[in-house]
Amino acid sequence: MIPAAFDYIVPDSLEAAAASLAEAGDNGKVMAGGHSLLPMMKLRLAQPGVVIDLKRLDSLRRIQVDGGTLRIGALVTHHQVETSSEVKDNCALLARVAGSIGDPQVRNRGTIGGSVVHGDPAADWPAALLAMGAELTLTSSGGARSMAAGDFFLGPLTTAIEASEILTGLSVAVPAAGTRAAYRKVKQKASGFAIVGIAVCLQADGDTCTDVGIGVTGLAGTPFRATAVEDQLRGKALTADNITAAAAGVADGVDALDDIHASGEFRAHLARLNTARAIQDALGG
């Protein structure tokens, strides 16, 4: 499997990268680690005439905490997120999700920005980013804009990014002390992609749920936030019965993916089961 020929550009600055992308238009593709783009190019599902490699943009490789916000650059690898003390100390959920992606070699090379912008419906990051209400930064030669993760994912391999834009990073609010979080995934054995993945981030006062975010990946063509489940849990006692009852609605009205790895019916079952389990995991038992 060999990609179609293309021109290869390695810009020295974000401005130059944005200018190259603007010039290439629909014919251009931005590459970070290449672990989503190259497989597409090898299958000739993507045949960009111009590939713009961001590898020299070290400013996009940073993880920073400032003023209660954790910022992760688009070129940060899954391995860096998994092992970063800033992430582990401030938002352990993201480190756990990173460590569940693919395998060590993939985590060494694949980046958070590349994965998010690829929009695979079975990728791990969207679950966590939706549960946490992450904000994405999209930059073009015309400037930068911010977009909520909830508005970004539109369908299988389809996101709200414009052809002229580069995802440069993302941010999440550092969760308040006492926030509990968990990620549960049933994975496809060979690739590690989620057949169903559920990220939960919740706050409780005693045993009463005061706030909760639940992100679901793998179940549908678009990762989504399980707002109906969240609404049913807020203000309720986090008893096993209440959790199971709320989780039972996670697949309601969802057009579940159906493929050789799992039928739609089975995926919906796994989603209900693992939503309840992820909430229990977050509660620590």
Partner: peptide, 21 residues
């Protein structure tokens, strides 16, 4: 397809799948 790992090499000290680079 970056699944099997037969092509694993080290690049700058980190193991990677050389079919996906």
């Amino acid at each position: 397809t970056s699944l099997c790992g037969a092509c694993t090499v080290m690049v700058d000290g980190a193991a990677v799948k050389s079919c996906t680079l």
